[in-house]
Amino acid sequence: MSADHLPFRYRWPVLAGALAGIALRLVFSGVAGGHWSAMAGAFVFLAPIAVGMVTVYVAEREHRRSWLYYLGAPFLATALFVVGTLLINIEGLICAIVIAPLFGVLGSIGGLLMGIACRVSGWPRPTLYAAGVLPLLMGALVPGTALQDEHSQVERSLWIAAPPAVVWQQLTQLPDIRADEVARGWAYRIGVPPPKSGVTGAAGQRVQHFRMGKGIHFDGDITEWLPARRIAWTYRFAADSVPAGALDDHVRIGGLYFDLLDTAFELQPEHGGTRLAMRTRYRVSTQFNFYAEGVAKLLLGNVSEVLLELYARRSEVQTVSCFSSMVPRAT
């Protein structure tokens, strides 16, 4: 492919776009909920558009580029922008991976808009100035606490070759979870610490205690307790539940932008085994819920499937072990 299509020969426009994005990210480095938080809609929506516009503007100063360039070069620039924030340690891996697809699309839109401005309007420089000022203006005007709360839920179910009583035991006593047992979880692959255990407290406490990697710990106050039939709990997070650095602040469980609300399991005898259904409700609070809620649903749905498979494997192993111990050995 020729250099007019992708910036392999002339890399400066892509680098200029990426540097513009990093500069905006440094501006939007405020505390969660503040005007200058990286979760502000002014940054999330407008920064990648500005990156795309800078990329195309710099390229057009050299010579006319193709329409494909207007889409492709900004996409590469936003990718380099995201990588750059990781390299200088102002962004966490989880947030970078989650936001990269949206940034890529918005960057391409910005590049296309600048391409149109260069070809049609004859006013590319004022357009570029507006693109650079608009994120700052909107960041100053729109409060970071102007969030949209959206409550949603994910539901999954799995048939398990074990009786309800055995499955119930795993639901209430699940210690020593190995990393390989949850390796299929997308959230854990991108940096969320994997679960370590989920154990019900002593008799009469009706509290589920959870531990995850990097020292994360929290409780579930049990609201429904029907042995071998149904269990549900609401999540409770203490001030020290998520140690500093264990999760990106933007995806902190129980934080300003995301929270787990409750989980319920229902057990139904089915075909000699158990149908285990899991429902988890959660909250997403951002200025771009159309995207954030979709990502949360995708990741939590996958995590639910991984946990159901974990319960199934342990329940089936226990069932086989119990059956084997009951079979008399030949003498």
Score class of each variant (00 low, 15 high):
Tyr70Gly: 14
Leu299Ala: 05
Lys196Trp: 01
Phe258Thr: 03
Phe81Leu: 08
Gly254Glu: 00
Phe323Gly: 15
Gln268Ala: 15
Gln153Asp: 11
Val83Pro: 11
Ala32Lys: 09
Ile109Asp: 02
Phe8Ser: 12
Val317Asn: 11
Pro101Arg: 07
Gly245Pro: 06
Ala183Glu: 11
Gln318Asp: 09
Ala131Val: 07
Met114Thr: 08
Val54Asp: 01
Gly72His: 04
Leu86Tyr: 08
Tyr70Pro: 09
Gly139Cys: 12
Tyr257Phe: 14
Ala32Thr: 06
Glu293Gln: 14
Ile190Tyr: 00
Leu261Thr: 07
Ala79Leu: 15
Gln170Met: 12
Val82Ser: 13
Phe81Ala: 05
Val154Phe: 06
Pro175Gly: 04
Gly215Arg: 01
Arg9Tyr: 09
Ala20Phe: 14
His35Glu: 12
Leu19Gln: 08
Ser285Ile: 06
Ala244Phe: 02
Ile253Pro: 04
Ala59Asn: 04
Glu181Gln: 12
Val182Gln: 01
Glu316Arg: 04
Pro124Lys: 03
Ile231Lys: 02
Lys196Thr: 00
Pro163Thr: 11
Gln173Ser: 10
Leu247His: 00
Pro13Asn: 04
Ala203Phe: 08
Ser285Pro: 05
Pro163Lys: 07
Arg252Cys: 02
Gly92Lys: 04
Glu270Gln: 15
Ala38Lys: 13
Pro193Val: 01
Arg9Leu: 14
Met114Asn: 02
Phe258Pro: 00
Arg283Ala: 03
Thr286Arg: 10
